[in-house]
């Protein structure tokens, strides 16, 4: 009986882990809905192009007119900084120009996984 309960618990843990793992495919869908109005991957739009943003210094995409706030922020974009940025851009870099935010943590994780997948 004890073995059975442990087995059930293990299956539950695996399921929870699987459902919460960042999903780059869902991230692409979320990116298009939440970010695609202003950002392209290889083209400057209202926001800077985002292919290979991972490891990039903030405010460094060529040809984009960043706010002084972002230019001077000197962050390196990784999982943590991108998560904070997407959750509340104004809190991370006050007086920046980004209009939107991504309140849902799963959405953020998926979008970040998608952006990371584009670094290869």
């Amino acid at each position: 009986m004890k073995t059975f309960i442990v087995a059930i618990a293990s299956v539950f843990v695996v399921c929870v882990m699987a459902s919460s793992a960042p999903d780059a495919v869902r991230g692409k869908e979320a990116f298009e809905k939440r970010c695609g109005g202003c950002h392209g991957l290889d083209r400057t739009k209202e926001g800077p192009m985002l292919r290979k943003i991972f490891g990039r210094r903030s405010g460094s995409a060529a040809g984009f007119p960043y706010s002084d706030a972002v230019k001077n922020s000197r962050l390196i974009w990784d999982e943590q900084t991108l998560d904070k940025w997407l959750e509340d851009p104004e809190k991370l870099i006050p007086n920046n120009d980004m209009a939107t935010r991504v309140p849902d943590a799963t959405d953020r994780a998926n979008i970040i996984a998608y952006l990371k997948s584009l670094n290869v």
């Binding site: 809905k33 939440r34 970010c35 109005g37 209009a99 939107t100 991504v102 309140p103």
Partner: peptide, 9 residues
């Protein structure tokens, strides 16, 4: 517009 709906669908 996208500014009205991108945050919360």
């Amino acid at each position: 517009g996208e500014h009205d709906i991108s945050v919360d669908d």
